[in-house]
Each structure stands twice: as C-alpha cells, then as structure tokens.
C-alpha cells in the first residue's frame, strides 16, 4: 500500500505485547514510538494480549498512548465487529496464539520483525 493509499483508508492495528512490543516480557522489536507513529497517522490501535485487561490499560497509560481497544487473545472477532476499517492487522510473535487467531478472525498478520520494516511504521516524508 502506498502512502497516499494509506491516508485514504482506515487501518486498524492490534498489537500483541509480550515478544512484540519493547515493553513486553520478553521485549519485542516494536518500540512505543512506533506505536505513537501509527497513532499519529490516525490508525485505530489497541492491544490483544494474554495480559489482563487492566494491566494492558496500565501499560498504555504509563506511556501516555491513547488506544481504541484492549482485548484478550481470543477477542479479535469482537474488535472486528466493533470497529469499521478497511484493513485489520494483528502483529504478534506466536504461531498459535497470534497468527492463527488473527487469520481466523479475518485479520492480516505480521510478525514483529516484519512489522518494524513495514511502511505503516515509517514516518511520512
């Protein structure tokens, strides 16, 4: 997707935390600045993790990032039902709990290492 196309569509990104975000355990390659970058691009964003909902909220609050949703691993279908978007993308580090759940819920999927280099996470010129 080109940058112009990116600006004209609604993109929703669901982030796994552990093994995906830098604040995860283990830490993942996606930095919180990268999350802020897509937030500033008006993407719909949130987290989808086995961490408790309250601890997910606490992570986002600690980093002063406003998110649109926090859900458990099994709740990607609910996210899709709640938000209208042109692109639904989940980023995570587990084959079973991220990739398979994402594809089953009709989301596109990226591994964290792939996501780092994806145009979504590049600054606009």
């Amino acid at each position: 997707m080109s940058e112009n196309q990116e600006q004209s569509v609604t993109i929703l990104i669901s982030f796994d935390i552990d093994g995906t975000l830098e604040v995860g355990d283990p830490p993942g390659p996606l930095t919180m600045d990268m999350v802020r970058l897509v937030r500033d691009k008006d993407f719909l964003i949130g987290s989808c993790s086995d961490r408790t909902l309250s601890s997910q909220r606490a992570i986002w609050a600690d980093h002063d990032i406003e998110v649109d949703f926090v859900v458990g691993k099994h709740m990607l279908p609910d996210v899709k039902a709640r938000f209208e978007a042109d692109v639904y993308l989940h980023i995570g580090d587990r084959e079973d709990l991220d990739r398979q759940y994402a594809l089953k819920a009709g989301f596109d999927f990226l591994w964290p290492d792939e996501a780092v280099d994806h145009p979504h996470f590049q600054p606009e010129p």
Partner: peptide, 24 residues
Amino acid sequence: QHRPEELIPEDYLASRWIAKPANL
C-alpha cells in the same frame, strides 16, 4: 517481584479458556 498486577474479577473472567471451564 516482576509484575505487581492485581487480578480483579473483570480480568479473571475475561480471560480465554485453556480447557473450559479452566481459563488462563
């Protein structure tokens, strides 16, 4: 030591099943 997180009912009950009715 590492993750001083409470486990309130909302968090517990929202968790996914591992072997229903045993959740995460």
